[in-house]
Amino acid sequence: MNRYLARRLLLFLPTLFGTLTLVFFLIHLVPGDPVEVMLGETASGTDKETLRHELGLDLPLWTQYTRFLSGLALGDLGRSLYEQDSVSRLVRARFPATLELTLTAMLLALLIAFPLGIIAALKRHSWTDRLSLLFSLLGLSMPNFWLGPLLIIVFSIELGWLPVSGRGTLAHLILPSATLGMAMAAILIRMIRSALLDVLHEDYIQTARAKGLSEQKVWLKHALRNSLLSVVTIIGLQFGTLLAGSIITETIFTWPGLGRLTIQAIQTRDYPLVQGCILVIATSYLLVNLMTDIVYRLVDPRITYGK
């Protein structure tokens, strides 16, 4: 286990490096010019050239890339072109909000999905099963940009229970995380149900039953544990979807997170800020997946990694 962990940690860096390289070249190759945005409508050609030179944007792309990497190695993400503040400070100010939103969404999804998925599998073709199917249908068919306003209209305007938008109290967190987590909950319900049904037919469950283990023990010890396998994989995958979804959810709920900052940085072609945002998003995605890989191993000791 320790050796495996060490290997995974070692591989973490090249992956991150690959992602950052991809971001760097993508954002620089996409049309758009940050200098135009910085200097405004009326700037003269020479002023633009001067600024481009000062920022090093006139250098060959390769030189800019090595500069970016050497800055990164020293822990320097550079300065935002448009916000005129250091990228690390801007990102640090926004990241907690996004983490809070995505983790709560994930938690909410798990809290909804496990009971519903288990009950659906236990009482197959019952009305609870159908209900859970209906719920996951809703979750899958409603894009964030539609579900969000609908939830606001129902819970904030009509019922008056929750605030419309913004960040602050626990109540502010409920609607955005429900919006963001709904699709994940929907997928998890179906996954859990299906995994449980698969496992129930396996021989060892039948054996366990035959051995006279109580039904509850069979479930908890064997069935759930094995169904967790596929769920754990899905959680890792879905975390990326949550991070991407936060871009739209944060815009709708006026959530001051990294997603909105990323969009803004992309629109103004604020290269260092885009790179900083992606660095943080990618790192947290990779960390969560590292964690799910470890959990995966814990849940299924049969897997051996490497020879």
Binding site: T19, I263, A282
Partner: peptide, 8 residues
């Protein structure tokens, strides 16, 4: 996967 699809 670590790369936000939106940017892509």
């Amino acid at each position: 996967m670590a790369f936000p699809g939106m940017l892509l």
